[in-house]
Structure formats: C-alpha cells, structure tokens
Design a protein around this nucleic acid. Structure first.
Lengths: 193, 193, 193, 193
DNA sequence: GATGAATGAGAGTTCATTCAT
DNA sequence: AATGAATGAACTCTCATTCAT
C-alpha cells in the first residue's frame, strides 16, 4: 500500500516535471499534471497539499538525489581539485541529460513566493555546503589561497555553473552541456589558487 | 504634454518596481500598481499594453540606463583588468543601491513566458557583449590567456556576479553588496589569466 | 452520469432563455444565467465555451426541435396549400406559446457577430429549405403559378410570418398570435397562385 | 454657427453609419466613430447624449428622409397598385444603393434595449402608416378585397420586403436588390386582391 | 466649441481546490 | 483510495463618459 502510494506520488512528480518544463509553472494547470499522470484532478490533492507543494517536492526530490549522488562521486576523489572537477562535471552532466528537470530547476522554480523559499533553500543549502567543504579542503590542502572568502567563492562557483546551465537551457542546445566542463573548471580552479 | 505623458509613464514604472518587488510579479494586480502610482486602473493601459509589458518595459528601462552608464564608466579605464573591476563594481553598487530594482531584475523577471523572453534578452545581450569585449581586449593585451573561450568566460563572470547579487537579495542583507567586489574580482581575474 | 450532464446543460439553456428574454443578450451577465440556473458561474463554462456559445446553442436547440416537429406536422398533409397552412400555423402557435423563446429568436439572436452567423444560418437553412420544398410541390401540383421564383417566394413567406411574430413580441400582446394565421395564410396563398 | 454645428452633426452620423456597418453596433467604439469623423472623442458628446443616441438619431435621420422621399414618389401615382409598386421599388432601390445604411437599419438597429425602442418605432410608424394608407386606398378603390385585415396586410408587406433586403445584406450580393421588385410586387399584389 | 487624457465600473473567463460518491 | 463535477473568488482588460484646458 505504502509502495503503491509512493508509486503514484512519483508518477505525479514525473508528470509535473514534464508539464512544468513544457509550459512553465504558472501556465500549467493542476488538471494538466493530472492528465499527464493519468489520474483524476482530485487525486493530486491526496499526495500534495497544493500546486506549489508539487513544485517544491519536485525540487527537493531532485536535489536530494542530486546531492546524494554527488556525494558518492566525491568520495572517490582525493583532493579538492579533483572534487571541484567532479562537482562541475556531475552538475553539467546531470542537467545536460535531463533538460526537462533542468528547466524546472533553473527557471520555473524561481517563480515562487518569497515565503515559500524555505522549501527550496533547504535542499540547495546541502549543495552549497558541499561546495564550501571542498573549498575549505582546498585551502587546507594548500591548493587554494588562504585569504579566499569561502562563502563568496562558493557563490562564484555555483553562479558560474548555474549560468552556464541556464544559457544552455534557453538556447536551442547546439552543443553538449558537458563540453563546457573543462573551460569552466580551468577558469574557476585558477581563480581559487 | 509630451513631457506629462512621459512623466506618467515613468510614474507607473516606478510604482511597478515597488509593487513587483514587494509582492512579486504574479501576486501583483494591475490595480495595485495603479493605486501605488496614484492613477486609475485604466490609465495603466494607456501607457502599457498589458501587465507583462510593464515588466518588460521596466527591465528594458533599467538595462538601457545600466548599460549606458556602465559604458561611460568603462571609457575611463585603460586595460581589461580595470574594466573588469569597473564592471563588477558598477554591477554590485548599482543593484546594491536599488534593492527593489534588483529584486525585480533578479527574481521577478524570470517568471515570464518563454516566448516573450526576446524582450528581455535584447537588453541583456548588450551587457553580455560588453563583458565579452572586455575579455577579448584582455586577450589582446596579453592579460588573459589566449586559449580562453570568451563566451564561456562571459557566462562565468556574469553568473558569478549574478549569484552574488541574488544571494544578497534573498538574504536579510546583513552586509553591503559592494563589499564583495574585491573577492569576486580577484577570483575572476585570476581565473582569466 | 451522462444523463445528469445533459440535464444541467438543459437547465442552463432554459435559464439562458429566461434571462436573455428578460434583459436582452448584451445586458445579461453570465452570472445572471448561472444564478437563474442555480449553478456557479464556472459551471456554465463546463457546458459552454462562452456566452455567445450559449445563445447559439440555444437557437440550434430550438430550431432543431422546431424543424423536426414541423416536418412531422407536414407529413400528414397532402397538398402544398395544406402544408403552407400547417407551416404558418405551427410557426405562430409555437412562438405564440413560448414568448420567451420567441423574443430570443426574433430579437436577441440578431445581435451576434457577423462571423458567427454560420451557427445560426445552418439550422435556419433547414427551415428555409422546407418552405421552398412546399413551394416547389405547389408548382408541381399546379397549385402555384409556374413563373414563381421559389427563392423569392420563400423570402416573402418567411418575412411575412417573421414580421407578424416580431410585431406581436414587441407589442403588449393584446391578441393571440395564432389568430393571425388565417389572414396571413390567405394573403400568401393567393399571392402564390 | 448653427450651420457649422449641423455639419459636424452630420459628419458624425455619416461616420457612425460607416463604422456601425463595418463592425456592428456593439463592436464599434465611440472612439472609432470619432476617428472616422475626424473629431475628438469628446466632440461626439457635444452632439449626442450617448452611443445609443447616435444609433437612434441615425435611424431617425434615415427614416425621415426615407418617408419624405417616398411620400413624394407616391404623390405621382394614381391607384393603390401603382403606389404599392412604388413603395417596393423605392424601398429596394434605396437600400440597394446604400448597403451600409441598409446594414445598420436591418441588423444593427435591432440590438438596442427594449426601452429605447420608442425612438425607433416612431419613425418606423410613419412608414407603416403610409403602407396601411395605401392598403386602405386599395380597398376603397375595390382593388383589394374588403375582408382584408389592413394591419396584418401591412405586416406581411413590410415583412416580405424587409426579409428580401436582409437576405441580400447577409449575402455576398450576387444580384441587384431592385431585380426582386417585380416578383415581390406580383406576389403581394395578388395576395391582396 | 473642441480636445483627448483620464477615469473606474464592469464583466467574461480561468482554475486551484473541494467533496459527495 | 480515487474520482471529476462543481465551485466561486480572483483578476485582467475594455470602453463609454467626463472635464480641465
């Protein structure tokens, strides 16, 4: 039963990714999601409190997997440089492989109310923390300069990757997102040193 | 008469900045903007085609001034490094001084329809071009390395500044945005070399 | 379920006849129809695309029944004269018994957009055709003169009955509409001979 | 001065005929009429109380000329048959020559509020009376049968002509309206005898 | 008389959410 | 748990009319 519930929960989330990505959050009707998921409108409300809740859950869902997988990737790497490389690579590869998810994360998510941003910032913070830990590690390993402001460096790193993804999403995608890994990495790693 | 029209156009834009910034684009009713501007609802439609048009005009208005002023700032600077410094400084100072405008630019603006993004990308492109010109100049002046992919570098630079601004907007603003100029500049300029 | 839907569809149509007849098409608000029908405003839009669609559906609904019943009436009659008599009688009796419907048909319906007249002319054409068939039959039966232009004769017949109804609708109805059957019939039938 | 006023009054009426005929009464904005007339919106209200007043004035204007001219035409004719022939001919010729006026008279005029119909029925009544006088004359001249109900006969005559005009207006006008004079006359005159 | 910018009431329509079945 | 018909608040935009100039 629980499993079944879980399944339908996921089916609706998957349908939401598709419809949000296709039409945008505000132009998507709950009934669109329901139709895409093959359930009745009312059923959506058995699994989510409201429309916004779907978007938040969606993001949390994505980000949890994202952070978890990323952590696994990082565990193989020895030093901060390798880890930074892994972060950039994983970020670009993951969103490059799932443009629909990427659009929701990059564009639609930013349309929600001020107040509800808590639901978003939570999962994001884990990611931010991960990045900051790598920067700190780099400083400890004397790979990055000591005066580096970790917080700011994290913003620069995340902002850079994020923008690269956004540009790709908004474009007609004439290149592979992952191809930008090397230039982005080199720029950032040199900046950190 | 023309002056008066222009005035009212501007009054409505100013009111829109305030209300969009306060409540967000989608939660702002046209009547809210009208009330804030001290005009009747219908008057808004004498100056703008629709609600979306207000947001777009707002952005174009802001960005035109932004790019123009920035160009003036850059004309004083001799080399690419000074210009990059000026860009970062101007960007952070300007948005730091006008948090309401900044919120609209950073958050609300990204809520519009796919199709209408042309209205946005136009003015933004001028800014992007400006950044890319500086990067090229740096390469010509042998300040930045030749292999640097200009386009990607621009994304990294803009993304970094943009994220720094967004974080500040979303925060309770316990620091001055301009204080981040130095760390951001150092990180980026070193990355470019 | 299907039955229920059909019921509500009809309930709304009935409410629309009343409100259109009472206040006229343009002065009737959709919410008026909804209130008269005892449903929510939104419910109206579950059954009709828009306000105009209600008026058109209304007319098609009325005319379909009208033509069907009229055909049944005509099947009993032997010659063209009897059929013409039946047409005039049925037309006057039907609209005389349902002044509300009559007002919508005679007055309100003619307020719609040029373009949308297709929805109207369709059902009307069936009626026109019926009249023309009777005229042709009369010519074949040597009841009406051969030189008679069928199309024009139809217009004269329909125009005459229609005007008689309109005058009655606009009047305070001090007489029975059906009482005009005999004089109208005599005038027309003699004109056709 | 008075002359000048009169001129502008007429200019606005002419503009109204054009715009009402082009777009229909309800889809025509007062500003459309003003633009067509080459005056300011406010100027329209110096000459007319409101939008409806324009339509009514328009009709009264048209009908006054119509009835006056028609009376002149009838004065030449000796008996009722000739007069009936003149009525049908004048009606068809006049509206056939001015399809814009015809559309307003036949279609747009019927869109007004119940209450205001007085403004319309007044001028129309003169026309109706004229027709009825001819019928009476025909009865007196023993051209038409004594039992004829004059009122009903008038409705039949007017309804017939009116329908013929309406059909022509709604059609793509592949024939001359005046060509229908003979068949209509023959049908009606024979009916009256 | 003439203007046309400004008004603001008004209405059609949408859609997130509910709840009886 | 699932349904989907029904709800009704919400909101954008229109346009007849006014009035200061």
């Amino acid at each position: 039963m629980a499993k079944r519930s879980g399944e339908k929960h996921q089916i609706i989330l998957d349908a939401a990714v598709k419809t949000f990505s296709r039409s945008g959050y505000h132009r998507t009707r709950v009934s669109d999601i329901a139709r895409e998921a093959g359930v009745a409108d009312g059923t959506v409300y058995l699994y989510f409190n409201n429309k916004e809740d779907i978007l938040i859950s969606l993001f949390q869902n994505i980000m949890n997997i994202f952070v978890e997988e990323l952590k696994a990737e990082l565990s193989h790497r020895k030093n901060a440089n390798e880890k930074l490389d892994a972060i950039i690579g994983y970020h670009l590869r993951t969103l490059g492989n799932k443009p629909e998810q990427a659009r929701v994360t990059q564009i639609e998510l930013r349309q929600i109310d001020k107040n509800i941003n808590q639901g978003i910032s939570g999962p994001l913070l884990s990611y931010f923390q991960l990045i900051e830990e790598v920067i700190e590690e780099g400083k400890n390993q004397a790979l990055y300069r000591q005066e580096l402001d970790t917080r700011t460096a994290r913003k620069v790193i995340f902002g850079a990757i994020d923008e690269v993804v956004t540009c790709w999403i908004m474009s007609s995608k004439p290149y592979q997102l992952i191809d930008l890994k090397k230039p982005v990495y080199e720029l950032l790693v040199q900046g950190l040193q």
